[in-house]
C-alpha cells in the first residue's frame, strides 16, 4: 500500500493520471454514442422492414414514432424481473452481463476516425476475435441456467453456430492481415489508402463476402437466427428472461451488429478514409471529417443487415452447417492462397 502511494506522488505519475482520465472520457463518449445508436437501430430496423413489407412501422409515439425507443426502454425498465424456479441463479444473473461486456469491450480497439481509438494495440484484430468468441458464453449459459428446454436448445444451436462461423470469419480476415502486414486496425486502415481501389473490399472480394456472411451468423441475425427461431423455439436462449435482463441481451445483439459493421468498415471499406479516385474527381470531399465517412459506411452495413433480414427466409439447421463448413471455410482458404501468392509475386 505504501509503495503504491509512493508511486502516485512520483513526478511522472500526474501524466499517467491524466492519460487515464482521457481514456475514461473516451470510453464514456463511445459508450454514450453507441447506446444511442442501439436505441435508434431498433427504431430504424422496424421502419426499414416495415416499409419493405409495405407497412408504416412504428408511428404512435412522437412524430413518425421517433420516441418509440424511449417508450420501449421505459417499459423494459419497469417490467417485473422474473427468475424461473430451479434456475441456476448466479449463472442466470451473469449470462446477460457477459454478453453485453463482450460486445462493449470490442469497441475499445475500433478506430472511429484518425487518432480516435480508446486502446491502440498491436493485436487489435485478434482482440476483437477473442472478445467476440467470449460473447457466445452469455448465450450458452443463459440457455443452460434458465432450466428450460427451449432456451437450452437455443443455447446449444448458438454454440455450434458460433464455433463454426468463427473459423470462417478468422480465416476471411487473414487476407486483410497479409495485405496490410499488421494486426493494428489503425494501420490496416492506413494500408488501404496506398492501394489503387482505396479499400480492401475490391482485392479481397472473396474475403469480404465470407466475412459479411460469417458476421451475420456470429451476431445470430436472420437468415441465421436459428438460436432464437420464434416458430420452433419461442424465442430461443432468452425465452425465460424479462425486463432489464432481456434488454441487456437485446442491447448486446445490436452492439454486436455495430461492432461487426465497424470491423467490416475498418478492414474492408477503408475506415475513415475516402478512396483516392473519388477525391480526384470531387476534391471538396477531402474536407468532410473522417468520422462522417466512418458512420456513413457503418449505416450502410447496418441497413444491409436489415435488407437481408427482410429478403431471405431462415435457413434449416443442416443448411447452416453446410454453408459454414463446405462453402465459407474452403472459400476463405482459397482467398488466403490467392492473396499469399499475389503478395509473393507482386
Amino acid at each position: 500500500m505504501m509503495k503504491l502511494f509512493e508511486l502516485l506522488i512520483q513526478p511522472g505519475s500526474f501524466d499517467i493520471l491524466l492519460d487515464i482520465l482521457v481514456v475514461v472520457l473516451k470510453i464514456a463518449v463511445v459508450i454514450a454514442v453507441v447506446m444511442l445508436h442501439v436505441a435508434y437501430a431498433t427504431y430504424f430496423e422496424r421502419k426499414v422492414i416495415g416499409h419493405m413489407q409495405v407497412r408504416m412501422g412504428p408511428r404512435e409515439v412522437g412524430p413518425h414514432g421517433l420516441l418509440q425507443p424511449v417508450a420501449d426502454m421505459l417499459k423494459l425498465f419497469f417490467k417485473e424481473d422474473i427468475i424461473p424456479a430451479r434456475a441456476d441463479k448466479p449463472v442466470f444473473y451473469l449470462a446477460p452481463v457477459i454478453s453485453l461486456m463482450a460486445a462493449l469491450s470490442s469497441l475499445a480497439v475500433i478506430p472511429f476516425f484518425d487518432g480516435f481509438v480508446i486502446a491502440d494495440i498491436n493485436i487489435g484484430l485478434l482482440f476483437i476475435l477473442a472478445v467476440s468468441s467470449l460473447g457466445s458464453y452469455g448465450i450458452v449459459l443463459s440457455g443452460w441456467a434458465s432450466n428450460s428446454k427451449y432456451s437450452f436448445l437455443g443455447g446449444l444451436r448458438s454454440m455450434a453456430q458460433v464455433i463454426s462461423y468463427e473459423v470462417a470469419m478468422g480465416l476471411s480476415l487473414v487476407g486483410v492481415m497479409i495485405m496490410a502486414g499488421s494486426l493494428n486496425l489503425t494501420e490496416i486502415v492506413r494500408a488501404q489508402a496506398s492501394y489503387p481501389a482505396g479499400m480492401f473490399a475490391v482485392p479481397q472480394v472473396l474475403g469480404f463476402f465470407v466475412f459479411i456472411v460469417a458476421a451475420i451468423a456470429e451476431t445470430n441475425r436472420a437468415p441465421f437466427d436459428l438460436p432464437e427461431a420464434e416458430s420452433e423455439l419461442v424465442a430461443g436462449y432468452f425465452v425465460e428472461y424479462s425486463g432489464m435482463r432481456f434488454a441487456l441481451f437485446y442491447a448486446a445483439e445490436y452492439i454486436g451488429m455495430i461492432v461487426m459493421g465497424a470491423l467490416a468498415v475498418t478492414c474492408f471499406l477503408g475506415g475513415w478514409t475516402v478512396p483516392g479516385f473519388v477525391t480526384a474527381v470531387l476534391p471538396f470531399l477531402e474536407h468532410v471529417p473522417g468520422v462522417v465517412w466512418f458512420i456513413g459506411k457503418l449505416y450502410f452495413i447496418i441497413f444491409f443487415y436489415y435488407w437481408i433480414r427482410a429478403t431471405l427466409p431462415r435457413y434449416r439447421y443442416d443448411q447452416l452447417m453446410n454453408i459454414g463448413w463446405k462453402i465459407l471455410i474452403p472459400l476463405a482458404l482459397v482467398n488466403i492462397l490467392i492473396t499469399g501468392i499475389a503478395k509473393v509475386i507482386l
Binding site: 485478434l126 468468441s133 443452460w144 454454440m159
Partner: peptide
C-alpha cells in the same frame, strides 16, 4: 490473444457442450 481465442473461445466451449449434453 490466441490463449483467449483457442482455449476460452473454442476448447472450453466444446467442454461446455459435452457437459451440458
Amino acid at each position: 490473444a490466441t490463449q483467449v481465442i483457442v482455449y476460452a473461445g473454442a476448447i472450453l466451449v466444446l467442454f461446455l457442450f459435452v457437459i451440458m449434453l
